[in-house]
């Protein structure tokens, strides 16, 4: 539905600000994720440190969204599409915060990996990671443009990330049997799992955006890899 403006302009502005904050937070979270994959591939420790420091920005966005949502509910009593806009913003912001946090966690683990890891393993993680970046990017676009089709695509393609994660973990586990750098390899297991979790959060956001657009819930069990 293409919405008209509210009669009360300040209400309209508050809802636009909320949407804008989500988009900014999402863009930052997506960037953090993308950089964490980059830092892993390039073994760039400086970049990894920057990711860790920058995570605070995402937390600040989350706080701002929480505050805006509580104010809207208390002072405007949003209804229908506005109610969904408000409630969904709160849920999306907590998924984005988790994406930011998991990206930060990837960065932390990179720092302790150093350079003894085979490029084959890193390659597998990179593929899964970039796929996840794409999912986050798409779902944010579906939020921005209220695009139900993209939402459903994101929701349906999480399975691929799950499959990539499984094969990445198998590869790492195999190495663990033969190689000595077990601490570093274990870090890779966590990175693989973080990427998979980020994919799940993108799926959660897809569900929220679908609800926002349609007022209905995406049906059925999410396909599992």
């Amino acid at each position: 539905m293409n919405e008209k403006s509210h009669i009360v302009k300040s209400y309209e502005e508050q809802l636009l600000l909320l949407k804008d904050t989500i988009v900014k937070m999402g863009t930052k979270a997506e960037k953090q994720l993308e950089l964490s994959i980059q830092a892993m591939v390039r073994k760039d420790l400086e970049l990894a440190k920057k990711i860790i420091t920058d995570d605070e920005q995402i937390d600040r966005y989350e706080f701002s969204i929480e505050e805006q949502v509580v104010n809207l509910i208390a002072l405007r009593q949003p209804m229908a599409i506005d109610l969904r806009e408000t409630v969904v913003a709160l849920k999306i912001s907590s998924d984005l915060e988790r994406i930011g946090d998991l990206s930060k966690n990837i960065a932390k683990r990179i720092i302790s990996i150093q350079e003894v890891i085979s490029s084959e393993l890193i390659k597998g993680l990179e593929i899964a990671g970039l796929k996840t970046v794409r999912q986050v990017n798409l779902v944010l676009n579906s939020y921005l443009h209220r695009d139900k089709d993209i939402t459903e695509n994101v929701w349906n393609s999480d399975e691929e990330i799950d499959q990539l994660t499984n094969s990445n973990m198998e590869m790492v586990l195999k190495k663990l049997e033969t190689e000595k750098n077990q601490i570093q390899l274990t870090q890779l297991l966590f990175i693989a799992k973080n990427i998979e979790r980020i994919g799940d959060h993108a799926t959660n956001i897809a569900e929220q955006v679908y609800f926002l657009i349609t007022g209905d819930y995406l049906e059925g069990q999410r396909p599992k890899g």
Partner: peptide
């Protein structure tokens, strides 16, 4: 029209 009315839109 219902949505416009209950959400306070024109």
């Amino acid at each position: 029209q219902t949505q416009d009315y209950i959400t306070g839109r024109f």
